[in-house]
Design a protein around this nucleic acid. Structure first.
Length: 517
RNA sequence: GGCACCGUAGCUCAGCGGUAGAGCAGGGGAAUCAUAAUCCCUUGGUCGGGGGUUCAAAUCCCUCCGGUGCUACCA
């Protein structure tokens, strides 16, 4: 049976500055989904990258006295580094400034043009360079000095230029049909409803080229124009599969299974993108799923307030896995979330160090100290043992169900419910007493605990790859027995194996100041 | 202005017609294998206000207040 393919993407970042925690969060979440699917047997292609063209990049570069490409190279390097810094397993990193992208975008444009969906006209209006957007007169506020400001507070200029347009209006009904036929095309539901009501409100044709700057992909046949942001940026998802080269090694990955994006760009992904693809005669991605925004102690992060969180610093301060766990456990995926140092320490200590780490440590050190490191073979299982194992076995199906909605937080909540039960099981059986009174029960309780830990560690790998790998090492689980095929009750941890000496995996976090002296 | 969504224990949230729930935080106890980690018990809410439907409403309807999102408009 051929392996089922799974293609997932993050949005590509605009590298007009340094990456912030929002970029990191999107990458972590998408990575966890990608890893989950790999462990569940899919042939996964996970893509992230950067969107490097546009007037803003060009202007920033001019201000700094470098070329746009130099600026893109410099800033993209920083975004790229975020991958290893957060332990992202992306299979490719695409840059819209790459030659492969020029080829794909040009081909897509020509297809849309051949379909009769692109025409040349004139665009006139108030334009904000900083927002890269036109605004209606009515949206602007007039300043005392006669200048006009966009709703975002950025200055606008009156611009008239020749522009190519895409016949978005033509796709209104087809889009509504799509949302209807494929209810999970846009998620979560709140976003879907917004999109439907937006499309029902009527669609205007879309300006898709510019002549006022040249840092971008030229329009085929009319290089005076360069393509405007969305045709260029969105197409990256197709570029990475090599289209239009049908023989490209990744050709079979299109259409993508999921685009994971921020809620601010849902319209472009759920309205424009499927329209472009329908026009070009390409299959549509299966799902577009929006995550929420992260707030710093409930406050919006912004450069001017100075409360922007640096993902690199966070990973360094708390550890990559703890940081990944925190965001994926604390924030219901799809909703906004809040970050605070107190909250992350609370999660680290309560969930990781106390609940999971301590359970592993107390059980494995019993094996080490009393059994010469040999994991016991279980004796006959009591009802209680069986019930404990059943809870762990049920985890995989629950996780798959939750993953159907990308409900990463639920997977973790369910997993930690099993860990809580395992702590009750362990405390209730008092293996430290059984050690003297009933060696066989002692061994069985330790074996059951180890088996639960094994399943928990396997299923938590997508969120905390390194820590779980270390836990599986301590449990003596071979590297080729760590996929989801090995859990859910189909296999058990092997008794009799000699385990390595246990060591703490999830350290308790103590504030550096407090431990300084 | 229109259309959604939300307002439940100190905090984060679940429940969405049938005697108020979870996790964390707070309080008390047990245990001592373990990262002072665990386990048990427990304090705590007139479910935003008011009105209605119903034998019965956190749950349905109306209205008001507060918050959020999307969208439109400024004559």
């Amino acid at each position: 049976m051929p392996q089922e393919r799974f293609y997932i993407t993050t949005a590509i970042a605009y590298p007009n500055g340094a990456p912030h925690i929002g970029h990191g969060y999107e990458l972590i979440a998408t990575d966890a989904i990608a890893r989950f699917m790999r462990l569940d047997g899919r042939d996964v292609f996970f893509l992230t990258g950067s969107d490097e063209h546009g007037q803003k990049m060009q202007q920033t570069a001019e201000r700094e006295g470098i070329s746009a490409r130099e600026l893109a190279d410099r800033n993209t390097a920083r975004f790229r580094e975020m991958g290893p810094a957060l332990n992202s397993s992306n299979d490719d990193y695409i840059r819209t400034s790459e030659a492969r992208h020029y080829q794909t975008v040009s081909a897509l444009w020509q297809r849309m043009e051949a379909a009769g969906d692109i025409y040349l006209d004139k665009y006139a209006g108030w334009y904000s360079v900083r927002d890269e957007a036109y605004y209606d007169e009515s949206e602007l506020t007039l300043q005392p000095d006669g200048k006009r400001l966009a709703p975002t507070g950025t200055p606008v200029d009156w611009v008239e230029e020749e522009s190519y347009f895409f016949r978005l209006s033509k796709y209104q009904d087809k889009l509504l049909e799509l949302y209807d036929r494929q209810p999970d095309f846009v998620g979560p539901d709140a976003r879907r409803n917004e999109i439907i009501s937006f499309v029902k409100g009527g669609l205007k044709d879309l300006s898709i080229s510019r002549t006022t700057f040249d840092w971008g992909i030229p329009v085929p046949g009319n290089p005076k124009h360069i393509m405007y942001v969305w045709v260029d940026a969105l197409t990256n998802y197709v570029t990475a599969t090599g289209w239009p080269d049908a023989n490209h090694p990744r050709a079979a990955f299109w259409p993508a299974d999921a685009h994971i994006i921020g809620k601010d760009i849902v319209r472009f992904h759920a309205v424009y993108w499927p329209s472009f693809l329908m026009s070009a005669g390409l299959p549509l991605p299966k799902r577009v799923f929006c995550h929420g925004f992260l707030f710093n102690k409930g406050e919006k992060m912004s450069k001017s307030v100075g409360n922007v969180i640096d993902p690199f610093a966070l990973a360094k301060a708390y550890g990559i896995d703890a940081m990944r766990y925190f965001f994926l456990r604390e924030v219901p995926f799809g909703q906004d979330g809040s970050y605070s140092p107190e909250a992350i320490v609370q999660r680290m200590n309560a969930d990781l160090a106390n609940d999971l780490g301590n359970l592993a440590q107390r059980s494995l050190s019993m094996v080490a100290k009393n059994l010469d490191g040999r994991l016991p073979e279980p004796g006959p299982l009591t009802e209680e043992d069986a019930a404990m194992l059943e809870l762990a076995d049920a985890l995989l199906d629950k996780a798959r169900t939750a993953m159907a909605d990308f409900a990463l937080h639920q997977i973790l909540a369910q997993t930690w419910a099993v860990i809580a039960e395992a702590n009750r099981y362990f405390a209730g059986n008092e293996p430290w007493a059984l050690r003297k009174t009933s060696p066989e029960r002692f061994g069985t309780v330790l074996w059951v605990t180890a088996e639960v830990l094994r399943q928990v560690a396997i299923i938590t790998q997508p969120v905390m790859p390194d820590s779980c790998a270390r836990l599986l090492d301590l449990l003596g689980v071979p590297a080729d027995a760590r996929s989801f095929a090995a859990i859910g009750g189909k296999a058990r941890i092997k008794g009799g194996a000699i385990l390595p000496a246990p060591s703490g995996i999830f350290p308790r976090y103590v504030e550096p100041e407090a431990s300084a002296e």
